[in-house]
Design a protein around this nucleic acid. Structure first.
Lengths: 218, 218, 218, 218
DNA sequence: TATGAATGAGCTTTCATTCAT
DNA sequence: AATGAATGAAAGCTCATTCAT
């Protein structure tokens, strides 16, 4: 009985998962309005009815997909911070981790972007966590760096966080711009690393404290 | 007869314009799939039938809106370049102009973003112009700066252009992130200027050539 | 222009009417849940879409049908009352009128019955008018009759009204009981008149005041 | 093994009963079309599948519920007839019994009404029994009364039976009319008794033979 | 006997598009 | 040039019913 229950449960759990996975792909590519429930059902290889059984509505399924995705970054940067390490080192580690997380999961990037355009109507319940992450973890690194005199004293932390976010996302986001700019495969190891290096370059040599640089006469 | 024709024509022009304006607003806020032809007709205060008369289909109207918007930046940065002026000065002028152009026309920003997510399916015919602008005009400034030794010799122009784009757009794009980060009105003069200053800071002190800065030991 | 408008309007009005008529028939026979929008559209010889254009939802169409039907009895009994005439005469006239109104419009009877079973969920907004009619008009006759000593002093007006309603409706309502009880056509002139006579008999000789009858020892 | 079988059987009986009870409630409130199999299963606290196991289909379950209900009145009035008692006394006893039977089991009333509206499509197999009851038992009393000269010679038995039925049912049927007419609880002891008294009054003083009343000049 | 998961057919509703004037 | 009315195709969603265990 117990085993049977377990089996049953796992079958249901499996179906739910297949739906979520299919939905994730389709929502991330076509958005909420562009996605078709039939298409999701077909991709999940399940009867459309089950989608409503498990998620009640298309909109709700979308929110669930969002929630699942936002959860992915919960523990992402936390681990990146090594207490006692140099702020610059911590920052680079966190940034690199963030960048490669996005590289690994373009669907996440796209979902976040759809949400942004839809004015966060659906994800607003789950978005704050993303901001929390950026502001608390990455922000913490920046604050420490400023205190220790490694980063510029006049650094605007919030703008900097937004900029880091932008510099990473744009590469995965703006498919349409990136593709025509480079002949190489956008997602090749080399290309990724070169983009990350550019970001680190840009970010650090903009945020390094004046004492680290002799001439800061703008 | 002639006068009547003129009147008719101008009335027609007017109708067409009202449709385009209404469409622009609605498409920019809801995307192609989210927009409703009825809504556009209502906003344009015109009979729905006229939309098909003038534009043949919803999709076509969308492309027309895109084209109109991409045209806006044709002459944007060209004027920003003052031949003979210092590259840094030219770059700042162009960047400022670009940033305030976006600030003035958020609908443009949003339309471009929708397009990006839709994999440039509709705007692909018109997008190249945007890239042209960035690569030719702003890119030209960067190239000159490198040649003149003002900007770093190892600067990746393409990445830099993409980054500038990202740093500007993100502020108008990610409504959902920006709003909760600052208490002040996102579009107030002060906030806009502070964002622009941050971008200039970040960009320049990352791209200035090593000779301009004493210590560039990365 | 004006004529065109009139024509257009009447065409729309006509469509709306066709929908209402078709809906009335189908709702009255199958109820709200049993009715199919497709069936209504087919019967109205109109595109299903128009139903939603004019009535917004199936439920709303149902309410509209109810309203239309309840309106039918607005002026029904009012005209039956001849001021100054004997209460018994007025009552008979009103009752006869009511009975033949139901006979003429079985759909009305059925709609009212569906509503009753659905606990007046949809018609509750419109039902009060029906009650008003019974209580004000027919009730007025009864009150006068009591005052004039023609009807029993202890007559419960509300119960009597309810009973009159029941005695009339049951004949058109309980198709399933009536049909097997009589060999003749339920709706033939003779049958209708015999039913009405029975009702009048039952009602009057129950409500006539004791002074009109020698022995009222129950 | 035997005991287990017994247990299984009684458990089965119990399940069947729970289903029937739940179905009765839901069908009586929402009708065949309005009822949901899921809802019935939930109310019966049983797996939906069992409904099909025991009853094969929703429609079949409905018929079973009807049959069960119609059976309730089998022996209802039979016992009411006391041979040799005065017809009026017997009639009153039967009528009272019928009225309070309905009062006790409103679900029965509602089911009968749904059936009537659905043109007796499903109950036609079981309805005759109800008619039998009325015509045989109550009808018998009326016939005796006429023979004995207690009831009017010109009394139409069938119409009278139909009327009695209507006068009783309407009170439990037309929830929507009754509720707004009285401030008191519709089902309170006082209200029920007052309704019954009204019916008896109405019925008897309409059907009592002329010899029992001094003046029957219609 | 009992169950959780699944299904297909069909429902209400929506939408871009076209007809008739 | 302009409009109100109408449409077909397809969307989201629901339901009675059955499968697998």
């Amino acid at each position: 009985m117990n085993r049977q229950n377990t089996e049953e449960l796992s079958r249901a759990e499996d179906s739910k998962n297949r739906i979520l996975l299919a939905a994730e792909q389709i929502f991330s590519h076509k958005g909420l309005d562009g996605a078709r429930v039939d298409e999701i059902a077909a991709k999940a290889e399940i009867n459309k009815r089950m989608i409503y059984h498990y998620f009640e509505s298309k909109e709700n399924l979308y929110v669930e997909v969002l929630r699942r995705n936002y959860n992915k970054i919960y523990n992402l940067t936390k681990e990146a911070i090594v207490p006692g390490a140099a702020p610059q080192e911590n920052a680079e580690r966190a940034l690199r981790r963030y960048f490669y997380f996005l590289a690994q999961d373009e669907e996440f990037v796209r979902l976040v972007s759809w949400e942004a355009l839809q004015q966060g109507r659906y994800g607003s319940k789950v978005l704050p966590e993303l901001l929390y992450l950026l502001q608390e973890d990455l922000g913490q690194i920046l604050r420490e760096g400023i205190e220790q005199g490694v980063f510029r004293q006049d650094l605007d932390i919030r703008h900097t966080l937004l900029s880091i976010h932008a510099l990473c996302h744009v590469y995965f986001n703006r498919h349409d711009m990136v593709q025509p700019m480079w002949p190489t495969d956008r997602m090749s190891e080399d290309m990724l690393e070169s983009r990350l290096q550019h970001i680190l370059d840009l970010v650090f040599h903009g945020i390094l404290s004046p004492t680290k640089r002799a001439d800061f006469s703008k």
